[in-house]
Amino acid sequence: MWDWSLFWKQLLERDAIRAAEATISAAIVGQLIGVTLGILLGAVGASRRRWPRRVVDAYVRVFRGTPLLLQILAFYIVPSEYGIQLPVFVAGALALGMNEAAYLSEVVRSGLMSVDRGQREAAQVLGMSSAQVLLWVTLPQAARVMIPPMGNAFNAMLKTTSLLGFISYEELLRHANLVLDTVYRPFEIFAVITVYYLAMTTAWGLVQSRLERYFRVGGSAPVARRRPMPRLAEV
């Protein structure tokens, strides 16, 4: 039967908390890589230069067309063929981030393209460089449409870190599996990590709605949310 004392003990176990921290740090580093690279790729994708744009297209195809798990395994296993062994955390966060960048680059690209051309022209006429136009005029305006999907991507990221268990990164799910090897009480143990995951994703959901409200400055209309969001960077 259900064992409350085991549940509480496992919930507050030092290793469980450490595993939760590992999950969060992998998600944050992965998200930072994803957002940064996604903005760079998206800006190139929205530009008029033909060849760089093709490179971005190819990148997106590769990372969206194959499973994230395959990418994680490839990042960890394939470099070893050339004598490079990436540390687990590096390989994992890099794979998560580069995968997410492929999704976010399209979000960024369409966000940038949704900004009226006159905005860019007005900035150019004032003598701003392309980088300044991007940084001060188009990106801030695209932010309103970019923030919700980016927030969803982080929510997905919190969950996809679970795949890093495959390359023996000790996040929550791997922690549960390890505990399961010694104490075969799957209900209690999975309940413990479920609590952690739900706490993280729910808390982030609250942060996200505040962020979205903050970025709705200038009285601009809120983004319509009738359709379910397209999937982002999951699996």
């Binding site: 009226d116 006159g118 905005q119 022209e121 007005a122 900035a123 006429v125 005029v137 801030p140 200038g218």
Partner: peptide, 12 residues
């Protein structure tokens, strides 16, 4: 300097 027909003030 240029002033546009559609103003093009930075909306944000």
């Amino acid at each position: 300097g240029m002033v546009f027909q559609s103003f093009n003030l930075f909306a944000h």
